[in-house]
């Protein structure tokens, strides 16, 4: 297990490659789950979220969750698993990850620490796309609205706010009679 600044660069590069993260990504925490230290099987934490990869006999299993979607984490003792909750309405979206998958050789006494750390991070990292959307609704300036819309579309293309951003953009380009951009 390695924390930011002490992660061997070979392991960091291997993990970035396995998860197809942008080359410049910084891994803040890495649990190398291989016996030979290649770090290709791993659990990592970045500023974006938690990523997990495991390969068995050529089959690869990937799992990830972004901080902005994560509501909280619970531990299910009978199943010996962490339960990552990101939708209270739709339980199918939530995910189980076994204790050993998250952190190799994690003993039960440390589980409360893991829960505390993850839940604290999840509660402090807010949905930035949603904040931008609020700014968009508060703004009365057309050019500012256009800029904010672009920021949402470019930086958070998978967020729920993208639809409103596109709508606002079209509306504003129409008002400005900017037909090229409207198209």
């Amino acid at each position: 297990v390695y924390i930011s600044k002490n992660i061997p660069s070979k392991k960091e590069h291997a993990a970035i490659k396995v998860h197809e993260l942008p080359i410049k990504s910084e891994i803040l925490w890495l649990c190398d789950r291989t016996f030979w230290g290649s770090a290709e099987d791993n659990t990592i934490i970045t500023d974006v979220g938690i990523f997990y990869h495991e390969s068995t006999f050529g089959d690869s299993f990937y799992w990830s969750i972004t901080w902005e979607k994560l509501k909280r984490v619970e531990f299910i003792e009978g199943r010996d698993s962490f339960y990552f909750i990101y939708s209270e309405e739709d339980e199918d979206q939530n995910a189980l990850l076994s204790r050993d998958s998250f952190l190799l050789n994690l003993s039960l006494e440390f589980v409360p620490h893991v829960l505390s750390a993850l839940n604290s991070i999840a509660s402090q990292i807010v949905d930035k796309a949603e904040i931008l959307l609020d700014q968009l609704f508060d703004s009365t300036d057309i050019d500012e609205q256009i800029n904010i819309s672009h920021e949402i579309i470019n930086n958070y293309p998978d967020s729920d706010s993208v639809y409103m951003a596109h709508l606002t953009l079209c509306y504003n380009y129409r008002i400005k009679e900017d037909w090229n951009n409207l198209l």
Partner: peptide, 16 residues
Amino acid sequence: KDIIIKELRKYPQVFD
């Protein structure tokens, strides 16, 4: 990034 590192460092026996 700072939030994450700060929280992980609170539990060096697990995350460090």
